[in-house]
């Protein structure tokens, strides 16, 4: 791709990643969440594939695959965290610790430190979607071959 596309990709890549992270992090407060944020972050990878070619990322296949598995494991493990009560029980909510603040009533800007295990699950899903979607785009580009372009 041309130098214009490459330069803009260099600028936008971190922004897209950060925005994806923002959507994941605020999943329990605003529209969006793990899946949407992960998809936004994966679009950053797609941008790199378009601008620099799939070869530039082909070394990252193992990393993406591991990240995807980790996301899935983390999600299921968070479900197991509640086993003292019931599976998927939100043991962190209202505990006062990590994400454990009580949810404020009335109009408020939103407290990030609430909702217990939900934000953690959002992160797990986010990483899974980022890695999974990124891997799909990357593999399509890699197997598409040179003569397709």
């Amino acid at each position: 791709m041309t130098v214009v596309v490459r330069t803009i990709t260099r600028i936008l890549f971190p922004i897209a990643l950060v925005f994806g992270g923002y959507v994941i992090m605020h999943g329990h407060l605003t529209p969006g969440g793990g899946f949407q944020g992960g998809a936004v972050a994966a679009s950053a990878l797609a941008m790199v594939v378009v601008a620099f070619g799939a070869k530039s990322l082909s070394g990252k296949k193992g990393l993406l695959s591991a990240l995807e598995s980790l996301g899935g494991v983390a999600f299921a493990a968070l479900g197991f965290l509640g086993l003292g009560v019931t599976f998927f029980a939100n043991v962190l909510a209202g505990s006062g610790g990590l994400f454990g603040n009580p949810v404020p009533y009335g109009p408020n800007p939103g407290d990030l430190n609430t909702a217990g295990t939900l934000p953690l699950m959002n992160w797990a899903v986010g990483f899974k979607v980022l890695a999974g979607l990124g891997a799909v785009v990357l593999l399509f580009a890699l197997f598409g071959g040179e003569h397709d372009r």
Partner: peptide, 23 residues
């Protein structure tokens, strides 16, 4: 653990499936 047997029969293969590539 036995009180959770029905969900474990679903959740364990799910977790196990995701962990298999890592292991």
């Amino acid at each position: 653990m036995s009180a959770h047997a029905p969900i474990l029969a679903i959740a364990v293969p799910l977790l196990g499936g995701f962990a298999t590539p890592l292991l």
